[in-house]
């Protein structure tokens, strides 16, 4: 349900990811999966059929040794703010954009599994449940009670740890506050990142670190020219890294298409 934060200042949650600080450890991926009850991969899954709301890509500058340089780019739902492609694609309102937080939400309970949203997403940040989720015996005890597991045949994606947002709101409400304490709402990947590369906060509040980061000349957004206004800001001091946010380059393909 869309929360009606009437009378409150509207938030616009976003992230800044300093790829120069990312070591590619994958801690964010693990933290995300355990926070959001993403089941262990089915034995039949591969990198194209697996489920991971956040995926760390290794990107290099395309040059040979000794000039070869690499960065790690964590990719998750970019929380598009304008003409949100998946929101406009979904035929039955299983995707919504919460006006009070700017978070693009996915309601797996209402999802038909048509995957049109996946076709619409330029960031390939949406994942389909190709198998029934199965936890090995005993492991179900480690599941997060605040997040509902998803069934086979529906689409899911990063929602900035919606369960934590709910918990923070409840805590605020219990103490009589209408506005939640930013310290109470931190997504799992932000919390897990050992180098502090990922920062999270309200972009509409100029005092937050993300808002400041988003305005630095080092920050850039993925495929900005598509006009989808993503709320994930990447940062790097290196020019070639900034260029990975652009459309694919006109280079003949070196390796054959993977089948």
């Amino acid at each position: 349900m869309i929360s009606e934060n009437k009378g409150n200042k509207k938030a616009r949650y976003g992230m800044s990811i300093d790829v120069d600080r990312c070591t590619g450890c994958g801690g964010c991926m693990v933290a995300c999966a355990s926070e959001n009850n993403v089941a262990p991969a089915n034995p039949g899954a591969n990198d194209r059929k697996g489920l991971t709301w956040i995926r760390v890509f290794k990107v290099d500058n395309g040059q040979e040794y000794p000039n070869k340089r690499s960065v790690f780019v964590p990719m998750m739902c970019q929380q598009c703010g304008e003409e949100t492609p998946c929101y406009l694609a979904c035929p039955q309102q299983a995707v919504d954009v919460d006006p009070s937080t700017g978070i693009v939400g996915q309601m797996p309970e209402r999802c038909l599994g048509c995957r049109y949203c996946m076709a619409a997403c330029p960031y390939h940040a949406r994942y389909f449940n190709w198998w029934d989720p199965v936890w090995p015996a005993g492991m179900e005890k480690t599941m997060n009670p605040d997040v509902a597991p998803r069934m086979r045949g529906v689409v899911e994606k990063c929602n900035f740890c919606h369960g934590r947002w709910h918990a923070a709101r409840q805590k605020a409400a219990a103490s009589g506050n209408r506005v939640l304490d930013p310290a109470d709402y931190v997504p799992a990947c932000v919390e897990a990142c050992p180098t502090g590369a990922i920062r999270f906060g309200d972009l509409s509040d100029a005092s937050t670190e993300v808002a400041r980061n988003s305005k630095t000349p080092d920050s850039f957004r993925m495929l900005e020219k598509l006009g989808t206004e993503p709320k994930i800001y990447y940062m790097s001091k290196r020019q070639w890294v900034k260029e990975i946010a652009e459309a694919p380059k006109l280079t003949p393909q070196k390796e054959p298409a993977r089948g």
Binding site: P91, Q92, G113, C114, Y116, M151, G153
Partner: peptide, 26 residues
Amino acid sequence: VDVGQPLRAWFTFWYPNVHSMLTEVT
């Protein structure tokens, strides 16, 4: 067969997103 949850097909009629081309198609 193509959709993941065929039994939910009626959702499109019950909660249509009129901005979606797929709603128009359905």
